[in-house]
Structures are given as structure tokens and as C-alpha cells.
């Protein structure tokens, strides 16, 4: 596993592409930690299609380890399509295909000979609506992915289920009900169960596709807190239609927009604080100030 270390400002300046696709560090805001971040996912000139429809064009960006990166933008801007390209879920739609490169710790997940199932073991996903498996208990739901890793030992499974539930701050709620069906939980608990299920396989990256859009405000806040905690161990990429959520939880924010041709493009990608306070692109400014969208 190659480790790509890079100084953030150098990325921004060194490549010098317009629009600026790497988050830059504001002069006063830089501290030691943010100067140097490991790149987990590097996207190079990504194009995504549904049949003949070009859905996402020309995306190049770097996603940093142990941070929360938010993808925002109006409906139809391609943000969900883009995130689904990061773990090869995009290709499940009939006729869908991808051009370009997505490097996970330096290796291209679209290279020949790559098994998409193994990509997904390292890049997990949480979906818009909680989708626990209805025929499985809470514990079985969390353990569902372990068998694909070849984890068969009962006590190891038990340990990992417990750890994942604790990390998803669900353990206290369910520790006496592990044998109950997962769908007996409330919506917010179900979504935390799905997060526990995703992190039980110890992925590098957890993708979240509008994980709170089906939840009430209190459950939403819990998930947001959880994202912050999880970012200490995982790389989190979250799609959200909620700008406040992006501002609250993310370190970096990417703004996407589809122009008249209905092809989604990355407009601006920077540190969250900078994007919301000092947007460089007029379109970003219009969107975050609510003038359109």
C-alpha cells in the first residue's frame, strides 16, 4: 500500500488547474496538522455516464484521510453519481460506465483485474434510507459483511459486532436486544446500525449518500456527531443537500453544479470554512447565499 503524502498548498499551487480543485489553506488558518494530510482517494479526470447521458464530467480532486469531505449542490448536479463512482456502485445501473481514474491509496479501482467486491470492502457505503436486512437480527446485520472477509470465528465476530456498535454509538441502545430484528429499531437507530454494519469490516473510507435525509432533526444531529468521531479513524465522504450540515460536519466541501447541458461538474472544492465564507466562484456564492438552488 503506497502512502501518498502531500502538502496541501503545493497541490493547489503546483497543479495550477482552473478551477482550483484542491482545497487551499487560508493564510491565517493553517496549523501544523492541516499542512500535511494524507490523500486517500485521488480522482483524475473522472467522467460518469448513464448510457449515452453524460452525468458527471471532468472531476479531478483529492480526498484527504481522516477528514469529512462534503459534496453539495442542487438536485441533479451529479453528487450522488460521483460518490457512487468511489466504490464502483455506479456500475450497477444498467448501461452505466465510468472513464478516468479513481486511486485508492495510489491504486486505480477501475484498473483491469480489480474486483469491485474487494473495492467495496475497503470503501463502505451508507445510503439515503436506512436499509437493514429485515430477516436478520441486529447482531447479524452488523456481522453481515464479515463473512466476505472470511471472518468465521464466533468470538471474533461477537467482538467486532460489539466494537462496531460502540463506534456507531448504538451499543448502549441495543446491547440487550442483539437478537431482535434490525428493523424493529427507530429510523435514526437503523441508520446507525447501517453505519455499524459498514464500519464492522474496517474499511478505509465510508461514503454516505444523504444519510440524514430520511431522519428527524435529533437523529440527524446524532449522525452528524458520529461523522466527526468516525473521521478520527476513517475517511468520510458525505453527499448532502443540506448546506448547514456540510458547514457543521465537514472539513472540506466540494460544490457541484450541472449547467444547461445537464452534465454535473465540480465548481469549487476547498476547506469548508473558506468555501462558505470566501467563495471564489460566483456560482458557489449564489448557491450558498440562497440566490438559487
Amino acid at each position: 500500500m503506497s502512502e501518498v503524502r502531500t502538502k496541501v498548498p503545493e497541490v493547489a499551487n503546483g497543479r495550477g488547474e482552473a478551477p482550483r480543485l484542491a482545497p487551499d489553506v487560508a493564510p491565517g488558518g493553517a496549523n501544523g496538522r492541516e499542512h500535511e494530510r494524507r490523500v486517500t482517494i485521488e480522482v483524475e479526470n473522472l467522467q460518469a455516464y448513464y448510457g449515452s447521458k453524460h452525468a458527471v464530467a471532468d472531476v479531478s480532486m483529492q480526498i484527504y484521510a481522516n477528514s469529512v469531505t462534503a459534496l453539495i449542490g442542487p438536485s441533479g448536479c451529479g453528487k450522488s453519481t460521483l460518490i457512487r463512482c468511489f466504490n464502483r456502485m455506479h456500475e450497477f445501473v444498467q448501461g452505466a460506465r465510468v472513464d478516468g481514474k479513481v486511486l485508492l491509496d495510489g491504486s486505480d479501482i477501475y484498473a483491469a483485474g480489480v474486483d469491485p467486491a474487494r473495492v467495496r470492502q475497503r470503501v463502505g457505503m451508507v445510503f439515503q434510507k436506512p436499509n437493514p436486512f429485515p430477516t436478520m437480527s441486529i447482531a447479524e446485520n452488523v456481522a453481515a459483511g464479515l463473512r466476505f472477509l472470511g471472518v468465521r470465528n464466533k468470538s471474533e465476530i461477537g467482538d467486532r459486532v460489539e466494537r462496531a456498535l460502540k463506534d456507531a454509538s448504538l451499543w448502549e441502545d441495543v446491547k440487550n436486544d442483539l437478537k431482535k430484528p434490525g428493523i424493529a429499531l427507530s429510523g435514526g437507530q437503523q441508520q446507525r446500525l447501517c453505519i455499524a454494519r459498514a464500519i464492522a469490516v474496517e474499511p478505509d473510507v465510508v461514503l454516505m449518500d444523504e444519510p440524514c435525509s430520511a431522519l428527524d432533526p435529533i437523529a440527524t444531529l446524532k449522525i452528524e456527531d458520529l461523522m466527526r468521531v468516525l473521521a478520527e479513524r476513517y475517511t468520510i465522504v458525505v453527499v448532502t443537500h443540506n448546506m448547514q450540515q456540510a458547514a457543521r460536519v465537514s472539513d472540506f466541501t466540494a460544490y457541484m453544479l450541472a449547467a444547461e447541458d445537464r452534465v454535473g461538474r465540480l465548481i469549487e472544492y476547498r476547506r469548508t470554512e473558506d468555501l462558505f465564507t470566501r467563495p471564489r466562484d460566483k456560482r458557489t456564492e449564489d448557491y450558498i447565499s440562497g440566490r438559487f438552488g
Binding site: 467486491a117 436499509n131 436486512f133 453481515a144 459483511g145
Partner: peptide
């Protein structure tokens, strides 16, 4: 529901 298939595929099935 396709969410069920996607849920398990996203775990590496």
C-alpha cells in the same frame, strides 16, 4: 427493494 441489494453489495458481496 434495490436498497437491499445495494446494502449487501456495498459490504463486498
Amino acid at each position: 427493494p434495490s436498497s437491499q441489494r445495494e446494502g449487501i453489495l456495498a459490504l463486498g458481496a
